[in-house]
Design a protein around this nucleic acid. Structure first.
Ligand SMILES: [Mn+2]
Ligand SMILES: [Mn+2]
Ligand SMILES: [Zn+2]
Ligand SMILES: [Zn+2]
Lengths: 143, 143
DNA sequence: TTATAAATGAGAATGTTTATCATTTACTCC
DNA sequence: GGAGTAAATGATAAACATTCTCATTTATAA
């Protein structure tokens, strides 16, 4: 567990809950985590942080640029470390597996479209939903 | 108020609440409506339909292909008539104004990307967020 | 080390959506 | 057209994710 420099730079105190959450994203198994998942994984590893604090910390990390928030289909927000390079996502509707991609053709078309419609672009979100064909995929359709 | 044929085709009974909701989408001012907006607009025009029924009807219409559901940034679902041709959206973060677009270059890139990652594509969602430059655009989003 | 502002935990509250169930309504058959 | 039946509705409770409140704890700076 390290890297309090991000927290300092964001003007946030170095607290135990914040370090635990950060550690989960830096050293955990999943890049993409919901608040509930963060909360449960911390509980499971003996660290107890209140759910309210998990939500607060995730929002603060998003605001300070440490995390990025995504709105996959459905209700809950999902977060991942902000490594500085934008990317979009393909989500498996059977097993939830997520693949990341970046396509400069799509990105530049988006800029052009926004300009054509007289919009100053802030942000965008692109999610592709489908069925992955991995062996591991539990509900994999036998084609 | 007309067009019960869609309802028949979907195997749904022709009920007053369903006709009222359908009418709102067909003859109302906004193409894109949340459940709450549908409910309030019906109330405002004297028609009273319970909120539970609004949610039920919207979901049924989505399932039967009469409406399409969108997940714009934020919490609530937004619906619009399914006119058969897919399109994506640019949303103004100041005033909520929505522009629609279709870009075949983006569409084909998405197919290629899904294929490259071994995904059988079901669906996708693309939202561009920005500031529109219309005269009418106020500096606060009208919720 | 102490003072102080910030952060936390517990639980209440909020906003959106779904579930329950008694009552009403639309469609079918006579 | 009128009764029978299954489906739809309304009122409200419940579920769910998320935010708020406030008393207590903690991190930081003097
Ligand atoms: Mn990602
Ligand atoms: Mn649209
Ligand atoms: Zn899968
Ligand atoms: Zn605008």
């Amino acid at each position: 567990m390290q890297t309090p420099k991000d927290l300092h730079k964001a003007g946030l105190k170095i607290t135990l809950p914040r370090l635990k959450v950060l550690n989960l994203f830096e050293n955990g198994d999943n890049r993409h985590l919901s608040a509930e998942e963060v909360y449960k994984q911390l509980l499971a590893s003996g660290e107890d942080v209140s759910l309210a604090t998990v939500y607060r910390v995730l929002t603060q990390f998003e605001l300070s640029g440490i995390l990025v928030r995504h709105h996959f289909e459905g209700d809950k927000s999902v977060f991942e470390l902000n490594h500085g390079e934008h990317h979009d996502h393909i989500v498996c509707m059977q097993c939830g597996h997520i693949e990341e991609f970046f396509d400069s053709a799509i990105e530049s078309r988006q800029k052009k479209i926004a300009a054509e419609h007289g919009f100053a672009i802030h942000d965008h979100s692109l999610y592709i939903y489908g069925d992955c064909t991995r062996e591991k995929c539990p509900n994999r359709r036998s084609e």
